[in-house]
Design a protein around this nucleic acid. Structure first.
Length: 466
RNA sequence: GGCGGCAUAGCCAAGUGGUAAGGCACGGGUCUGCAAAACCCUUACGCCCCGGUUCAAAUCCGGGUGCCGCCUCCA
């Protein structure tokens, strides 16, 4: 069976055909690191992590690149507000990004290139575009001559003349045409800058991805992915830049994930209605957050809500209970049962269905429903008086197999021994006595993460497992 | 104004021609001294509305209604 994926470029599901047999070159637009990421930022990180895992599961050798935008207007503003330097702010939030996405089960990319580490490639790219007459310098800025690129609009399916009508750019025009976009931006007094043939400045937002994708993955890549809102103008501009330069298609498949909404409205940093992953993972099981995200098809919107997250957690816990029960049963199982082959075949049937669903444009929602069916099947098996070690192991293998694709371990972390809990509670009481509340809260959070809920009562501390 | 998406049970959500997956919640049951937990079962005569095509439509076509997004930094 072939993998099919929905390609924004053609607006159709297509059979995936890599450039090079068995290999996948994949580029996913990463964040601008001026703040902690919100859960909207986390969605592409998670869903394309699953795409990557699945391609690897199907035995492709995946070269996965995801960038950090570590210099731009927002970073400069953030640095000013924090009274810090741009590189420090970037460094701090890159670390936070890895921490937050790591908590959500996202594997690191093979490369995480940064703009500031690829300045020469970017300058060379722009220089070549100027030489080819696709770009021009104007008072220290460099702009892309949008109308010069014939296919402009082919990714976002916009006509260039309609775009012009919608254009709201009016004042301070250094451009030949309002549609032209910035490749290089002259530095203002005191701003972080790099030396270039056009004077001191920094790259525009779109050029970095073109330059870095080219450097790390080549002229034509297999999959380029990102949030839906990047399709225009960001990805459209990337296509224009790269194809103008190389004359080859930039990416064969363009994947775009849907938004996360709050009260049915788009979440964004600019609207101010965002939920930071950094905060959310303190309130909710990170695996449940991931599970929740994957329970909806990646192209559809998700309306974020704490209650929905809680019900996702309940569902995930049921699967974990099944796995726990299987393991428990394994301890004293003998090979008494018959029908071993029959059961193994049955379990393999679930795997086939799982693969079929994932093949169909990474339908994780359906893949998860198969997981629940497998869970029910396992529960039924556990009710039989005689169980076979082989079958139990096969069930467990199958859960681990699905888990490796979804990036969720269905094994529950080892619960703390009660003595350890008591000891931590004691330590917290001491901390509270000494008014070291931050340490006290830290312990409480730590215990909460392990599923232990503390309640301070007049009679002392009471705790229970969640 | 241009382009795109969505509308399925109380809630969430798959399903793009063959007679409505799955989850959460509710209800019933098994287990239990009781409870909790766990497990099992049940839950949409119908998929926004009106027409049409077809042996067959949630799925295709036409026309409505409502919601959302992109066209401006944004995952």
């Amino acid at each position: 069976m072939a993998i099919k994926l929905y390609n924004t470029l053609t607006q159709k599901k297509e059979v995936f055909q890599p450039i090079e047999e068995g290999k996948v070159r994949m580029y996913v637009c990463g964040p601008t690191v001026y703040n902690y990421i919100h859960i909207g930022n986390a969605r592409p990180a998670i869903v394309f992590d699953v795409v990557r895992r699945y391609l690897e599961y199907r035995e492709y050798d995946v070269h996965y690149v995801s960038n950090f935008t570590d210099v731009d207007d927002k970073l400069i503003r953030a640095a000013n507000e924090l009274g810090d330097e741009v590189p420090n702010v970037a460094e701090r939030f890159i670390a936070a990004y890895h921490e937050d996405t790591g908590a959500l089960g996202v594997k690191k990319a093979d490369e995480h290139p940064r703009v500031t580490e690829n300045m020469q490639e970017i300058i060379d790219f722009i220089t070549a575009l100027i030489e080819k007459n696709y770009a021009y310098e104007s008072e220290g800025d460099v702009y892309f001559r949008t109308r010069q690129f014939e296919g402009y609009g082919k990714l976002s399916h916009q006509s260039i003349d309609e775009l012009k009508l919608g254009s709201r750019i009016v004042v301070g025009e250094k451009k030949e045409d309002p549609l032209d976009f910035t490749l290089w931006k002259a530095a203002k007094e005191g701003e972080i800058s790099w030396v270039s043939p056009w004077g001191e400045g920094r790259p525009g937002w779109h050029i970095e991805c073109s330059a870095m994708a080219k450097k790390y993955l080549g002229d034509t890549i297999d999959i380029h992915a990102g949030g839906k809102d990047l399709a225009f103008p960001h990805h459209e501009n990337e296509v224009a830049q790269t194809e103008a330069l190389t004359g080859h298609p930039f990416a064969n498949y363009w994947l775009h994930n849907g938004y996360i909404n709050i009260n049915n409205e788009k979440m964004s940093k600019s609207l101010g209605n965002f939920v930071l992953v950094h905060d959310l993972i303190k309130q909710h099981d990170p695996e449940a957050i991931r599970f929740f995200m994957l329970s909806v098809h990646y192209r559809n919107p998700i309306n974020f809500d704490h209650e929905l997250l809680a019900s996702a957690k309940t569902g995930l816990d049921r699967i974990k209970d099944t796995v726990e029960n299987l393991e428990h049963r394994l301890i004293n199982s003998a090979d008494l049962a018959e029908n071993v082959l029959e059961w193994k075949e049955k379990i393999e049937g679930y795997q086939n269905r799982f693969v079929n669903e994932m093949d169909d444009d990474f339908n994780t929602a359906n893949a998860i429903s198969i997981l629940f069916e497998l869970s029910k099947e396992a529960n039924l098996y556990l009710q039989e008086t005689n169980s076979s070690k082989e079958v139990l192991e096969k069930f467990l293998e199958q859960f681990a197999d699905f888990g490796s694709v979804l990036g969720i371990s269905f094994k529950r972390e080892k619960a703390l021994l009660d003595e350890d809990v008591d000891q931590l509670i004691e330590e917290r009481n001491e901390a509270r006595k000494q008014r070291n509340f931050s340490r006290a809260d830290e312990i409480r959070d730590e215990l909460k993460e392990q599923g232990i809920l503390l309640e301070d009562t007049p009679q002392g501390v009471r705790w229970k497992r969640m």
